[in-house]
């Protein structure tokens, strides 16, 4: 997969940028019905960031995450992962890119209902070709870190919403991605559960250096974010780095 990623000729190969978007746009429709979901957005994400992308509905938060995650193709502009452009990738290479470099956390958990918590985590490593012993060790470790070591054999329906979202976090992290993209991860949780989950992710960010980018309306995420990017009408309105 690496060979298929086109290296950006002008990129700065410093290690302090994980993600970069340049003049990134996503338009839907044309003429009078043209909707600019995202319009010329340029930003960089550094390692260990705990970034929240905020804004009203329709501001382009989810679209930005979709483009960063290679789930949608931009109308214009480019996304770079560690200096490598992803727009030239084939469908298969994009799948491998998501598998190896991106961790996704969805609003509705989106675990595979017929797989246990451990199997949900193991699945992506199977795609990566990780040996069985290592898979098992990583799953055990990851479930332990998210506080679900005793619930590895439970299926999603046997877990609470908060527990399911913890499994989703474990699934996103277990493949050792470069960045985790989380779309409204607390939206379906009560405030206490949401707060606990955020504390856990914040801890993983601080202790293990995992980079998180959230799309959210949740004040609890904004409070914890090390960087707050405000979107409005598909453009960056403000970009605030916090101490």
């Amino acid at each position: 997969m690496q060979a298929s990623i086109q290296r950006k000729a002008s990129a700065d190969p410093t290690a302090d940028v994980v993600f970069e978007t340049r003049e990134l746009s996503r338009h839907y429709g044309s003429g009078d019905t043209l909707v600019k979901a995202l319009d010329q957005v340029s930003l960089t994400i550094a390692p260990r960031e705990f970034t929240a992308i905020v804004g009203p509905s329709g501001s382009g938060k989810s679209t930005l995450l979709q483009l960063m995650g290679g789930l949608e193709a931009p109308t214009a502009g480019e996304v770079y992962l560690r200096g490598q452009a992803i727009s030239a990738m084939s469908g298969r290479d994009l799948s491998d890119f998501r598998r190896d470099h991106i961790g996704f956390i969805f609003q509705a958990y989106n675990l595979i209902p017929v797989l246990t918590a451990a199997e949900n985590c193991e699945y992506i490593m199977l795609l990566q070709g990780v040996p069985k012993a290592e898979r098992q060790a990583r799953v055990d470790s990851m479930l332990n870190r998210v506080g679900l070591s005793g619930k590895a054999d439970r299926r999603p329906a046997q877990l609470s919403g908060g527990q399911q979202q913890r499994v989703a976090v474990a699934r996103a992290m277990v493949s050792q991605p470069d960045i985790i993209l989380a779309d409204e991860p607390t939206a379906n949780l009560d405030s206490q559960t949401g707060s606990d989950l955020l504390d856990m992710m914040h801890e993983l960010n601080r202790r293990e250096g995992m980079t998180f980018v959230f799309s959210t309306h949740d004040p609890m995420i904004m409070e914890r974010a090390s960087r707050l990017i405000q979107l409005r009408d598909g453009r960056i309105e403000s970009d605030e780095v916090r101490a």
Binding site: R92, S95, R98, L127, R171
Partner: peptide
Amino acid sequence: TWEIGVLLAIGTRRLA
């Protein structure tokens, strides 16, 4: 459909 969407989103190839 949503579940297959998840599988594809997290990196499952279409052939898989």
